[in-house]
């Protein structure tokens, strides 16, 4: 796995009341894509965090209430996906490249 935080060794998903989790999978040609970079951008396009997908294409962020954009980077590709997060819950997203 690669330089961003290792998404393969994340703790199991237990959402605390103070966390708004955004998580999901990056898929390409119907298959989970490991090693993609997923950037979490705030409402004004502000960079907030970046992770790299696990061997199963999985990513997770701990955010706050509100609207967010996921920008997914892979060689030759950059795809934006919007998502709304709320404290105490987990918003799940599938990003297709």
């Amino acid at each position: 796995m690669c330089g961003a935080p290792d998404q393969a060794t994340l703790p199991s998903l237990e959402v605390s009341p103070n966390e708004a989790v955004i998580h999901g999978t990056v898929v390409k040609d119907g298959q989970p894509l490991p090693g993609a970079y997923v950037r979490l951008l705030g409402t004004t396009g502000e960079f907030t965090a970046e992770v790299q997908t696990s061997a199963t294409g999985y990513f997770r962020f701990y955010a706050a209430d509100g609207d967010w954009t996921l920008r997914t980077l892979a060689p030759g590709q950059s795809v934006d996906t919007t998502v709304t997060a709320a404290k105490g819950s987990a918003a799940e997203v599938t990003v297709e490249l």
Partner: peptide, 18 residues
């Protein structure tokens, strides 16, 4: 840090548990 960490909305970058 990110604006949300600066303002005090969150305490760590969003790829880490808070």
């Amino acid at each position: 840090r990110s604006p949300d960490e600066f303002s005090g909305k969150i305490k760590a970058p969003a790829h880490l548990p808070q």
